[in-house]
Design a protein around this nucleic acid. Structure first.
Lengths: 151, 151
DNA sequence: GAGTCTATCGCAACACGTTGCAATAAGCAC
DNA sequence: GTGCTTATTGCAACGTGTTGCGATAGACTC
């Protein structure tokens, strides 16, 4: 694996990875990766499909989802489930992070690896469980809402 | 509110709670609560619908989901999303708990309040965020899988 | 360059969950 | 008991995501 740049090298990396597995690089996949890279934060499956269709109206949901699965298999993309159960996708080049969803104001904070470290450590010591930061999706009250919602 | 027994008093509590809100107690709701109580652990929406239909074939998904929403509103039931995004319901009489889903062996551990306390505390101190234990659903590797998956 | 193999695509159908609406029936006042 | 109000129900349609299958087309061998 060695060190590698993210971003513009992404397509290249993908082509190589696919070829190594006897798989193919197609225009549709290029579009899907582009769209995913362009929606830098998080995008639901439906949003991605819509944007892909803007560039290629012939694209179908199944193709998009299958490509996303493929990208995940290659470790280049991730998905997690939001508080409403909807899937949210993002490129793996984004720093690994968790999500904190506030049920008070509806905002979503990201939880970076540094902030999460003590949390993961405390989970491990309490349960022996090694939690994936990327699947860490908490719901609760953010500090601001906690302060204002003095009921 | 005051202290109250769970279990057999559940139906009674529900009737009172509904009446207080100008809402009604129907046979279908009774069935849904019974089914939920019978599937002691966790059941997906689809499973619940199927079981409700065994007792009342005329029940429809919308009715079941609406009743589940109602039960949640009354604080008598909860739902959370499993690792595949499917909804899972359980009665609130079950002790509040989180979920640890192991991606190695696929098992699900429950995380009781006592074990979760230090974790929630560490989340709060790292982020100011007060997380809901009932929505705490982690994915990762359990202790056993961590030990065996020395890759 | 021709032929073969097979990954990918588009389509169609399905599963789960949600929502809007009209019909029904439960609860209440008189 | 009669009539009114409105919560609940069933239906139908929709949105999101998944899966199976036949057709297509890209890549590889000879």
């Amino acid at each position: 694996m060695a060190t590698e740049r993210a971003g513009e090298g992404l397509t290249e990396r993908l082509q190589v990875a696919l070829k190594g597995r006897g798989q193919r690089w197609t225009e549709q996949r290029q579009i899907i990766v582009d769209v995913l890279a362009a929606s830098d934060g998080h995008a639901t499956g439906a949003e991605l499909i819509e944007r892909v269709r803007e560039q290629d109206p012939s694209a179908t949901p199944s193709t998009v989802y299958r490509t996303l699965d493929l990208l995940e298999e290659l470790g280049l993309a991730r998905h997690h489930h939001g508080p409403d159960g909807r899937e949210t996708y993002h490129l793996e080049e984004t720093v690994e992070h968790g999500h904190l969803h506030c049920r008070g104001c509806g905002t979503e904070q990201e939880l970076d690896a540094a902030a999460a470290a003590p949390i993961l450590k405390s989970i491990a010591s309490a349960t022996g469980f090694s939690a994936d930061l990327d699947h860490l999706s908490l719901q609760g009250l953010c500090a601001a809402c906690r302060a204002s919602q003095v009921s």
